[in-house]
């Protein structure tokens, strides 16, 4: 745990030592603001809630989170620092977890910086802040799920463009697994998988949080989803660290 903490610290500082952090946070906030107020009709709805904000959060994360994760391992390979990192007295699992937690911490900072939305809606009306808090918990879990997918894919390739595109595609597939785009194709071919797909949609789970409902089932779903991809990440790193 101590070693994981040291890696988290190094990674987090590295985000802010490069323009990555600034660019990511500025674009995230600008995109989120534009979508909420224009496409989301925040004012016209006349409701004291952040539904029009949260509706766009998973889509923006779907685009931006793979941009963080694409460099996570691919960059270490390109610079050769992976050889330094993995010959220190640490296990691959500690490195995987440290990188993931740092990226998650960074996403938490970006999400926390959307606090003006919360202030705005509280000035304009009397929203249920418990529901808003649940929405934020959901947004964090969605970010964690996308990060775990992107990190594992980054470990499998040296090429950052491939890491980005494949991560967006995989995250998208899991996000809309219950939508006709995925289920129609699956029901024609393998009905069993279609039934499974309806249950594992990230966006459906997220909507529960936006409604203010936090259930143990959804928490277990997200933990096992993240856990599975982190495990896969560790396996990939151990198997092909030198490639």
């Amino acid at each position: 745990m101590r070693i994981t903490g040291v890696i988290v610290q190094r990674e987090l500082v590295a985000y802010f030592a490069t323009p990555v952090a600034t660019v990511f946070i500025v674009i995230f906030l600008a995109l989120q603001g534009a979508l909420t107020f224009n496409l989301g009709n925040f004012f016209d709805r006349g409701q004291a809630d952040l539904v029009s904000f949260f509706n766009f959060v998973p889509w923006v994360l779907l685009l931006l989170v793979p941009a963080i994760t694409m460099r996570l391992w691919a960059e270490e390979r390109r610079q050769g620092t992976i050889e330094l990192l993995l010959t220190l007295p640490i296990t691959p699992a500690q490195a995987v977890l440290g990188k993931f937690l740092a990226a998650w911490g960074f996403c938490t900072i970006a999400l926390a910086l959307t606090f003006p939305f919360v202030i705005t809606v509280n000035i304009l009306g009397n929203p249920d802040n418990g529901v808003i808090a649940a929405g934020y918990v959901g947004a964090l879990l969605v970010a964690g799920a996308f990060l775990s997918v992107g990190a594992a894919i980054s470990a499998a390739t040296k090429n950052q463009v491939i890491a980005f595109v494949v991560a967006v595609a995989v995250c998208f597939t899991f996000s809309v697994a219950s939508y006709p785009i995925v289920t129609e194709f699956l029901s024609k071919n393998t009905p069993l998988l279609a039934e499974l797909a309806r249950r594992i949609s990230i966006f459906d789970r997220f909507l529960n949080f936006v409604r203010g409902v936090i259930t143990l089932r959804d928490i277990i779903y997200f933990s096992s989803f993240i856990g599975f991809w982190l495990f896969l990440n560790t396996v990939i790193i151990e198997a092909r660290k030198a490639d």
Binding site: R10, Q79, G80, L84, T87, P89
Partner: peptide, 20 residues
């Protein structure tokens, strides 16, 4: 892990994190 604790290793090309 025990082996690497006893080891000082300079990889080929001496890679380091450039932004640190």
């Amino acid at each position: 892990i025990a082996a690497r604790r006893q080891l000082g290793f300079l990889p080929e090309g001496a890679p380091t994190y450039p932004e640190m």
